[in-house]
């Protein structure tokens, strides 16, 4: 566990944004056969530089808070760290088991029951069927949904769905924990439970990277902070210098 580490060197990620236009075969064919296609060749495909030369070095025990405006590249960085996006330039190296809690609804099938969804989520996270059954009681208990777990998730209220998703998503031990935006889940009682669970998870995980706008949350979970702006990352600074970073 102490071996967990994240190293990003000169990480650049560019998104081709395929407009509704670019996805049409007709347009692509028209472009291919048109004369002097140079001008039109990239029509409809816009390159957006989501991350630009980001350098980041984290070791076990680091709990990094990512701050920055919407669209500043926080989520892209998290997705890149999760292994979903590949760099256009530079490298990403992550040691340790990664758990990404970016989208709580990952792998949630509304027509399946709560139990089935927990199993599905666990399988995606890399647990074997046996490991899931071993944890099932604990996860079911944590959701507090009791008999509702045997009912289809589509009958749940939004809060209940949130409870289920959170419980299932956090059931996996990880060395590197990636979390996007604090998604307020459930009622106050559940918030408290969730908070305890996250603290435990953070302690257990070697590294946490958390993207959020909420300063109290940063101070609660993080010991380091980095600011993103237009895909460019600031230096990683100690959490005590947060106010200074925000003031810049």
């Amino acid at each position: 566990m102490t071996t967990a580490s994240i190293t990003c060197t000169d990480l650049t990620i560019r998104f081709p944004v395929y407009g509704a236009d670019a996805k049409s075969l007709k347009k692509a064919l028209a472009r291919a056969v048109s004369v002097g296609g140079v001008l039109g060749r990239h029509a409809g495909v816009t390159d957006v530089t989501a991350l630009s030369h980001v350098n980041l070095q984290l070791k076990a025990g680091d709990r990094l808070g990512l701050i920055g405006h919407n669209g500043s590249g926080k989520t892209t960085l998290l997705r890149a760290l999760s292994g979903a996006y590949e760099p256009d330039e530079g490298t990403i190296e992550v040691q340790g088991r990664i758990a990404a809690l970016l989208d709580l609804s990952l792998g949630i099938d509304p027509s399946a029951t709560g139990y089935e969804n927990i199993r599905l989520r666990g399988r995606i996270a890399g647990l074997s069927s046996r490991e899931i059954e071993e944890r099932m009681d604990e996860i079911a208990d944590f959701t507090g949904l009791g008999p509702f777990l045997a009912m289809p998730v589509k009958t749940y209220s939004a809060g209940m769905q949130g409870r289920l998703a959170f419980a299932a998503a956090t059931a996996v031990e990880a060395d590197v924990l990636l979390m996007d935006e604090w998604i307020a889940v459930g009622d106050q009682d559940f918030q408290k439970l969730a908070h305890k669970r996250l603290l435990k998870l953070v302690e257990r995980a070697g590294i946490l990277v958390l993207a959020t706008h909420e300063v109290p949350l940063l101070k609660l979970y993080c010991n380091k902070v980095m600011r993103m702006e237009g895909g460019v990352a600031s230096e990683v600074v100690d959490i005590r210098k947060l106010d200074q970073l925000l003031a810049d």
Partner: peptide
Amino acid sequence: ATHMLRTG
């Protein structure tokens, strides 16, 4: 996987 390396 416990080790991930992605390069450009």
